[in-house]
Amino acid sequence: MKLNKRQKKALENIAYASRTSISPDDYIIPGKFGSGIGDVTLNSLIDLGLLESGPSKRYYGSKGYRPTELGKKVNDEMLK
């Protein structure tokens, strides 16, 4: 799977934030995974099946993101 620079950065940052979170299955809100990652990039990763979005448990009422199983695999391959 070919990802552009922004997609790689977003996936790597969200996967890291998810792994190091108090609740790894929670959705990570945008302020917690770095700056410069916008809706277009996030939506493209959702369309590719690498991210999913949903309500954050920790930050009630906020929309967050987390990697799918495929997203975790792709991220692990990028880090090798």
Rank of each mutant, 00 (worst) to 15 (best):
P24T: 01
I29S: 05
V40W: 10
G36T: 03
K8I: 08
I29V: 09
I37S: 09
K2C: 13
Q7T: 07
I37K: 04
D26R: 01
S35L: 15
K80G: 12
I28R: 01
K5S: 08
S35G: 14
Y60L: 10
D26F: 00
D25S: 03
E12W: 15
G36I: 04
P30A: 09
T41I: 09
R6N: 10
K8E: 08
D26L: 01
K57F: 13
Q7W: 04
S21A: 10
R6G: 15
L70S: 14
D25Q: 06
D76N: 07
N43P: 06
N75I: 00
D47M: 08
N13L: 11
I28T: 01
I22D: 03
V74C: 03
L11P: 03
K5Q: 09
A17G: 03
S62R: 12
S53G: 11
K73F: 13
E12M: 14
G64K: 04
K63N: 13
R19L: 09
S18Y: 04
Y65C: 03
Y59L: 08
A17H: 07
R66F: 01
T68D: 11
E69T: 13
G54E: 07
L48I: 12
G36L: 04
K72I: 15
S35C: 15
E77Q: 14
N4G: 06
L48R: 06
R58L: 12
R66Q: 00
G64N: 02
L11Q: 06
K2G: 13
Y59I: 02
S44Q: 09
S21Q: 05
K63H: 14
T41P: 00
S18V: 05
N13D: 11
K8Y: 09
D25W: 04
N4T: 08
V74T: 03
L79Y: 11
D26Y: 00
E12P: 12
K8H: 06
L79R: 15
V40M: 10
M1Q: 14
K72W: 09
P24D: 00
R66I: 00
N13S: 12
A15D: 12
L48E: 08
A10F: 05
Y65V: 11
S56W: 07
S35I: 14
Q7L: 05
T20P: 02
T41D: 06
G31Y: 09
D39P: 05
